[in-house]
Simulated assay, not measured.
Amino acid sequence: MEKRKDLYTREAILIKSDLVEALQNDANEIVAIEKGKNRQRHLLLPFSYSDFKNLLIKFGTACLYKRCQNKNFVIDENNEPVIKQLFYYVTHNPTFSGELSKGILLQGKYGCGKTILLETYSMLHNHVVKKFFLNHSLLLFIKSVELQEQIRKQSVKYFVKRPMIIDEFGRESKTIQDYGNVIRPISELLSLRSDVGTLTHGTSNFTLNTLSSEEFYGRMIGDRLRMMFNFITLPGESRRN
């Protein structure tokens, strides 16, 4: 009986001579749909570079004042090359030095300005989305320690599909006790977000090699980090004074 079914299948395929072409067309259509979804993940900001810099200064200053730091956001020789790459990224410019389909992980020394730069970007992104009622998700800006605690209190599923910026990536405890069980909330979240392709950004004081070590997330998660992020280094010493 099974052999007869196989014969019927082969006969049906032979009769429909254009089957391969039809399947190829279907595959091309699926690829086009998925490409469209990937483009939709990014909010395209239609700014010139000078406008983008000025907006970062304004919103960055607002971020600093929210922290009770009475000073202006400054663009200088240390952060401007990174800001230019961020501009290429948010305007979908092929000049961007990485892959536009990935998120951005800013690396650098303590206090060099990684957090304020991406927090400023998230504020600008969210303000544009809300002001113009755009069909884009808001960016959740959250420290890794707080994120881990939220996962423990709620569930990892609440954070799998939401676009986010994870600040101080790698600073959290890698394992925690939950009702007697040892769990790895951030590792599990990264794995799930990688599987579904959720856009993730972050900041970290650690290199990819360090994050991929057994003392941190291990080689398996490290390999996923390579797939998820463009690793960009922000040079310079601490701006905290």
Rank of each mutant, 00 (worst) to 15 (best):
L56Q: 10
T91A: 02
L45C: 02
D167N: 11
M1E: 12
R67G: 11
E146G: 00
L45W: 04
N25E: 15
R10D: 13
A62M: 13
Q150K: 15
Q69V: 06
S187N: 00
S50Y: 07
S155R: 09
V31G: 01
F229D: 06
E99N: 12
N70C: 04
F47W: 15
R152D: 11
Y158W: 07
L64G: 05
L225K: 01
N72G: 01
Q69T: 01
P185Y: 07
G113Y: 09
F96Y: 11
K130M: 13
I176R: 01
I75N: 05
G197Y: 11
N72M: 00
E34H: 06
D6K: 06
R41V: 05
E188P: 02
E237R: 02
H201W: 15
R184K: 15
L14F: 04
N181G: 06
R39F: 13
M228E: 09
N230E: 09
S213T: 11
G180I: 02
I183H: 13
T9I: 15
K109C: 04
T233Y: 14
E2C: 01
G98V: 02
L56V: 12
T200S: 11
S191T: 11
L105G: 00
E119R: 05
I221H: 13
G202M: 08
L44D: 10
M220C: 05
F73E: 08
L124K: 01
N135Y: 12
L139W: 14
A32R: 03
I33Q: 12
Y158T: 01
P94T: 02
D18A: 02
G103T: 06
L189I: 07
I104V: 05
R152W: 03
R4C: 05
N72Q: 05
K3A: 11
K109F: 09
M164S: 07
S173P: 10
A27C: 04
N181S: 14
L139Q: 14
L211P: 11
A12F: 08
P94W: 00
L19N: 06
L138N: 14
C63P: 04
G113V: 03
H127D: 14
A32K: 05
F47G: 01
Y110K: 08
M164Y: 10
N181L: 14
K157W: 10
V82K: 00
P163A: 00
T120W: 13
F206D: 09
L189P: 10
N135K: 12
F47I: 03
E34W: 06
C68K: 15
T203C: 09
K5P: 02
K131L: 12
I232G: 02
R240I: 08
F87Q: 07
S194I: 01
V196D: 06
Y49F: 15
L118G: 07
T210W: 11
I165G: 09
L190E: 05
R67C: 10
I183N: 12
L208N: 07
V196G: 01
K58F: 11
L19E: 09
L105E: 01
N25T: 07
Y88V: 01
